[in-house]
Design a protein around this nucleic acid. Sequence first.
RNA 1: GCAUCCGUAGCUCAGCUGGAUAGAGCAUCUGGCUUCGAACCAGAGGGUCGGGGGUUCGAAUCCCUCCGGGUGCGCCA
Length: 603
Amino acid sequence: MKDSVVAVVTATLNALKGRGVLTLAAGVPAFVVEPAKNPAHGDFACNVAMTLSKSEGKAPRQIADAIVSGLVDEARLFTKVEVAGPGFLNLTLADSAFHQVVRRVATAGESWGRSPPTGKKVLVEFVSANPTGPIHIGHARGTFVGDALARLLSAAGHEVTREFYANDYGHQVDVLARTLYKRYRELFGESITLEEGEYPADYVKEIARVWRDEDGDVWLKSDEAAALRRAQEIGIRENLSAIRETLILANVSHDVYFSEASLHANDKVMPTAAEYVARGMTYVADQARGTEDKKRRKDSKAAHFEEQQEGGTWLMTSLHGDEEDRIILRKDGSPVYLTADLTYHREKFLRGYDRMIDVFGADHAGHLARLKAGMTLLGLEASKLEFVVVQMVRIVRAGVEVKASKRKGNVFELKDLIEEAGVDACRFIFLMKTTNAQMEFNLDLLERQSKENPVFYFQYGHARCAAVLRKAVAEGQPFVGLDAVSDEQLATLVLPEEKLLLKKMSQLPEVVAAAAATSEPHRVLYFCQELIAEFHGYYTKYKRTERVISDDKIKTQGRLALVATLKQTLRNAFLILGVDAPDAMSRVEADDLDDDGDDAAGV
RNA sequence: GCAUCCGUAGCUCAGCUGGAUAGAGCAUCUGGCUUCGAACCAGAGGGUCGGGGGUUCGAAUCCCUCCGGGUGCGCCA
């Protein structure tokens, strides 16, 4: 609907220019057409007169009056156009414009809300948990946000690749191998002690049992280096497989699992470092230039690890916005994590994406500047690299924060959270907030009020649509279908609430496009919330007077078309969020909600 | 100290990139089911949009500054 309004306004502006009323020296300005919040302001409001005021040298209201009197509306879209307030155009549309929404949804069907293919290739990298343990609650938000973002970008017409970068190389996986080897020997009666930094959690013991069952005791007698190699292989394999299982539970999939170790194995990392050296963007020093008198808080990790830092080859990332230069080769010439990460991102560029989005936690936000700078230093277009930084989540149970730490052994796995909260509820809660704000996940609330779980409100909205359509069948007035409903039947949709619903539904494509452009899946969620609230209000208000299913067969079909259009709209939006759109809610009995349920019914 | 994110109703959060009278859920209170699903709805109370400056027709939104909180500032990944 909005685009047709914009079209009329634009045509009118050009006509006024042709008649010399407006100069439009700077072309048609950026202006906004937005759904009116106040019904007294018509259906849509437009601010173009105000934005033109300065460049035209005229008062906003004067320009607005000119637009009204010179309106180019051949299709008779508007029934009323008024000037109001400081110079707003308040536009009221003909009923038929609302009914067109049903036609559009009917034509588009499953693809309603989705944009036509843009031909753009977009990469979304998300989850990327280390294969040194299971996915835990620290990864949860990024997992669901990344998945929803990938769905959203695909809906916006992009060709999306979902990628998981597995950090299966380096110090952490060595520690995993060491821990696992100890647990393996423990299974054969050896007594072991874990050192600081090794992984005390039970999942390592389980992997050790898998290893023993698979290989028997052969590694007890073999030399340690070979045993550790085998331990690493088994450990990564088992952890990765557990990660994949959890992702399936979370309803999340990836197209590509990219192994960091493969970069090293294929000899890709050192050439990247060599490239930087060849470009003259490096230097050898004991520490980064300009950091000699840098202040750091005494309790920071940097201060703690200071004596272990020997210097080496530095990359001049500070030339392009990084706080300081970063080391890429140690004194012994070996590459660091960043060197591999730069290589990985370089590989992404070589694969030819238009946008590359990394989703990661706030604790990695510091990487943003160095990665961008690193790409720029390779002569690549760093603006193609985007980041969605997901802020921290506090998980609260019984009023206190639940801390999870792989190192301390108390891992709170995502798998368990999903089991406890339900996958849709879980996903929903993480998607409800903007990614750049911290959030709290309160498990008490979820348990105590499972009946009022936010996701149910949404799913109930969809289920209610389905229920009405079922009821119509039972009443002997089955809906003829969105493609068969007649203009005469649609013409019965004249109630203000019906028009508001149609107007709202018409916005799905805009909402999806805007959410994709800003990488903000939560916008789609709030759109659904508003739509459903309007529907429930409409439904309840007219329950006694203007029911969907009535003796008036024509009106009944019109309203069923409204309900079916809504159902399709919600279903498509839910799919973009990745939550289920059920046709029926499974009833939760009061007794199931708490354990003291034998009082109410019996007495 | 520096970087970065956040601060909106008692609580948890939206606010469509600058628009008209700042919204929702939960919590509290009052109402609403013989008929399409009450997991719902209607209404009430509750706000110096952290404070102060600035930009302009117009600011919760943009800029500066201060206050408060999170995260990071590693040759771990």
